[in-house]
């Protein structure tokens, strides 16, 4: 009887020690689910979802505080990917958060710009160059098209321009064949 008890206690202690060691040694820093969600989000940092950036939105989704259909730049495909990842039901994009638009970049009308630096402060990815009372301009390659610079501009000199297709970004279309009427 005593032997059995000792053996069982011994095993319990051993396993407990093992588990304790593992919990320290293999501790996962941060939430891997948030990283996975963040990887799907388009990183526009536009805040249309109601959160200040993509990462906070990813946090909210992972915490169950937000729906997966609040990201207009990610569009339907983004929602589908999130639904796949999280095992949730697909939902159409929620209208109150905006509509899916073609990818655009902001363009500053440099003749009108008064150099107030308000857009520079608003830009989440530092894609606007300029200084006080100097003309500002947008680094098109880094602009995510979040439209956050439009509202602060006191002279309305920023416009969104859809990105034109070039030979490098042109895509082969999905093969579609016209159905002809038999003569």
């Amino acid at each position: 009887m005593l032997t059995a008890l000792l053996v069982m206690t011994g095993i319990a202690l051993l396993l407990g020690a093992g588990l304790g060691f593992a919990s320290i040694k293999f501790k996962v820093e941060g939430d891997p689910l948030v990283d996975k969600i963040d990887a799907i989000l388009p990183q526009t940092q536009c805040g249309q979802c109601g959160f200040p950036g993509c990462r906070p939105y990813a946090n909210a989704i992972a915490g169950g505080e937000a729906e997966i259909n609040q990201c207009p730049p990610g569009g339907e495909e983004g929602i589908r990917k999130l639904a796949d990842l999280l095992g949730r039901e697909f939902k159409p994009l929620s209208e109150e958060h905006g509509v899916e638009k073609p990818k655009s970049v902001a363009v500053i009308d440099e003749a009108t710009c008064i150099g107030c630096t308000l857009c520079i402060q608003a830009c989440p990815v530092d894609a606007i160059v300029g200084a006080a009372k100097q003309m500002h301009t947008i680094i098109a390659a880094d602009c995510t098209g979040c439209e956050l610079c439009l509202a602060p501009c006191p002279v309305d000199c920023i416009a969104m321009e859809p990105i034109a297709e070039t030979v490098d970004t042109w895509k082969w279309r999905y093969p579609v064949f016209q159905i002809r009427h038999a003569a």
Binding site: P42, A127, D142
Partner: peptide, 15 residues
């Protein structure tokens, strides 16, 4: 797109 998103994330975090 993925590359652009990665750059944007990096720049956002840096900001």
């Amino acid at each position: 797109e993925k590359e652009a998103a990665d750059t944007a994330r990096e720049r956002f975090e840096f900001k």
